[in-house]
Simulated scan of single mutants.
Amino acid sequence: MARQLRPVGIDFVGEAPVRLVFAREISASPERVFEALAEDVPGWTEWFSAVTYARPAGGGARREIHLRGGARFQETILAAQRPGLYAYRVDTTNVPGVRAMAEEWHLAPAGTGTRVRWTVAADGAAPFRLALALARWGLGLSFRGAVTSLDRRLAAR
């Protein structure tokens, strides 16, 4: 059953009770990474193995995302500032215990490539907050695999 979450703005990313931050440098340029994140939403299934379904909605102002394991999200884009920032909040989800959630992808030049920083910001019931904190290692592994796969995908194009 879908749960309506509390709407949050971009400032929530820096203020949330639970914030998980992951970073990695890749060889693709910030512009190309931004395009993959913001403009090729269906392509997420090709490089982020946790994502099984991704489609833009609402004329590109929203997204629908399904993850391996059955989690589903309806999201609203909070920022799409070429080439350095892409952020969205979760509006509805079937994940229990979550009250508010947003994610931010920050892209910064790093030599000839990009430093990709992904922040997951959330609030929820105590069991949800604990579960998310315990999932840090797995989310970090998933992030590293995803951006490595994205870098290979962009290099092949």
Rank of each mutant, 00 (worst) to 15 (best):
A102D: 10
S29I: 10
L134W: 11
A100T: 07
D151R: 11
R129Q: 07
G43K: 04
E103R: 01
L78E: 07
R129G: 12
E104Y: 08
A131R: 01
R129I: 01
R82N: 00
M101Q: 12
V33W: 00
S142K: 10
A125Q: 11
L85Y: 07
Y88Q: 14
V51Y: 07
A71N: 05
A133T: 13
E25K: 10
V90P: 00
A50I: 09
R117S: 15
G14C: 08
I77G: 00
R115V: 07
D40G: 07
G70K: 03
G97I: 07
R99I: 09
G140S: 12
S29W: 05
A38K: 14
G14Y: 02
G59T: 11
E103T: 06
R99H: 06
R136K: 15
R144I: 10
L107R: 05
G9D: 14
W44F: 04
V13C: 10
R24D: 08
R19Y: 04
T52S: 15
L67Y: 05
E75G: 12
S49G: 07
A135V: 13
G97Y: 00
V90H: 01
E46Q: 14
R72F: 03
V120T: 10
T148E: 08
F48D: 05
A16W: 05
L130C: 09
V33Y: 05
Y88H: 14
G84D: 13
W44I: 08
D40M: 02
R99A: 08
R136C: 13
V147I: 12
W105P: 07
R89N: 06
A121F: 02
R68E: 04
E46D: 15
V95G: 14
R63V: 06
V13Y: 06
R152Q: 02
D40P: 08
L150I: 01
L85A: 04
V33I: 07
L20T: 09
L85R: 01
